[in-house]
Amino acid sequence: MSESVERGASVRGWAEVDLGALRSNVRALRGRIGGAALMAVVKADGYGHGALPCARAAVEAGATWLGTATPEEALALRAGGLPDDLRIMCWLWTPGGPWQEAIEADLDVSVSAMWALTEVTAAARRAGRPARVQLKADTGLGRNGCQPGPDWRELVGAALRAEAEGLVRITGLWSHFARADEPGHPSIRAQLDLFREMTAYAEGEGVRPEVRHIANSPATLTLPEAHYDLVRPGIALYGISPSPEVGTPADFGLRPAMTLAASLALVKRVPGGHGVSYGHHYTTPGETTLGLVPLGYGDGIPRHASSAAPVLVDGKWRTVAGRIAMDQFVVDLGGDRPAAGAEAVLFGPGDRGEPTAEDWAQAAGTIAYEIVTRIGARVPRVYVNE
Score class of each variant (00 low, 15 high):
residue 140 G to Y: 08
residue 140 G to C: 08
residue 140 G to P: 10
residue 142 G to L: 12
residue 142 G to W: 06
residue 142 G to Q: 11
residue 144 N to F: 14
residue 145 G to I: 09
residue 146 C to Y: 12
residue 146 C to P: 10
residue 147 Q to T: 13
residue 149 G to R: 02
residue 149 G to H: 12
residue 149 G to D: 10
residue 150 P to I: 11
residue 151 D to L: 14
residue 154 E to A: 15
residue 154 E to K: 14
residue 155 L to Y: 04
residue 157 G to P: 01
residue 158 A to C: 14
residue 159 A to W: 06
residue 165 E to A: 07
residue 165 E to I: 07
residue 168 V to T: 01
residue 168 V to N: 01
residue 170 I to P: 01
residue 171 T to D: 12
residue 171 T to R: 06
residue 172 G to N: 00
residue 173 L to R: 00
residue 173 L to N: 01
residue 176 H to Q: 12
residue 176 H to W: 14
residue 177 F to L: 13
residue 181 D to G: 11
residue 182 E to M: 15
residue 183 P to Q: 05
residue 184 G to P: 11
residue 184 G to Q: 04
residue 185 H to M: 06
residue 185 H to Q: 02
residue 185 H to L: 01
residue 186 P to S: 03
residue 187 S to T: 09
residue 190 A to G: 02
residue 191 Q to R: 04
residue 196 R to Q: 13
residue 196 R to E: 07
residue 196 R to M: 11
residue 199 T to A: 09
residue 200 A to R: 11
residue 202 A to D: 06
residue 202 A to S: 12
residue 203 E to P: 14
residue 203 E to A: 09
residue 205 E to P: 10
residue 206 G to L: 05
residue 207 V to Q: 13
residue 208 R to N: 09
residue 209 P to G: 06
residue 211 V to P: 07
residue 213 H to E: 06
residue 215 A to W: 01
residue 215 A to S: 00
residue 215 A to N: 00
residue 217 S to N: 05
residue 217 S to Y: 00
residue 217 S to Q: 01
residue 218 P to I: 03
residue 218 P to T: 11
residue 220 T to W: 00
residue 221 L to H: 01
residue 222 T to F: 10
residue 223 L to Y: 12
residue 223 L to P: 05
residue 223 L to C: 13
residue 225 E to Y: 11
residue 228 Y to K: 09
residue 228 Y to G: 13
residue 230 L to Q: 01
residue 231 V to D: 00
residue 232 R to N: 15
residue 232 R to F: 10
residue 233 P to I: 05
residue 238 Y to W: 11
residue 239 G to M: 14
residue 239 G to I: 08
residue 239 G to H: 10
residue 240 I to F: 15
residue 240 I to N: 13
residue 241 S to H: 13
residue 241 S to V: 10
residue 243 S to D: 14
residue 244 P to I: 13
residue 244 P to Q: 09
residue 245 E to F: 06
residue 246 V to G: 04
residue 247 G to I: 05
residue 248 T to N: 07
residue 249 P to K: 09
residue 250 A to L: 06
residue 251 D to T: 08
residue 251 D to L: 04
residue 252 F to W: 05
residue 252 F to Y: 08
residue 253 G to V: 00
residue 253 G to K: 02
residue 253 G to T: 02
residue 253 G to L: 03
residue 254 L to K: 04
residue 256 P to Q: 12
residue 256 P to N: 13
residue 259 T to I: 08
residue 260 L to S: 03
residue 260 L to D: 03
residue 260 L to V: 13
residue 260 L to G: 04
residue 262 A to T: 14
residue 262 A to G: 07
residue 263 S to N: 15
residue 265 A to G: 15
residue 266 L to A: 14
residue 266 L to E: 14
residue 267 V to T: 15
residue 267 V to K: 10
residue 269 R to S: 15
residue 270 V to Q: 02
residue 271 P to T: 03
residue 271 P to E: 06
residue 276 V to W: 00
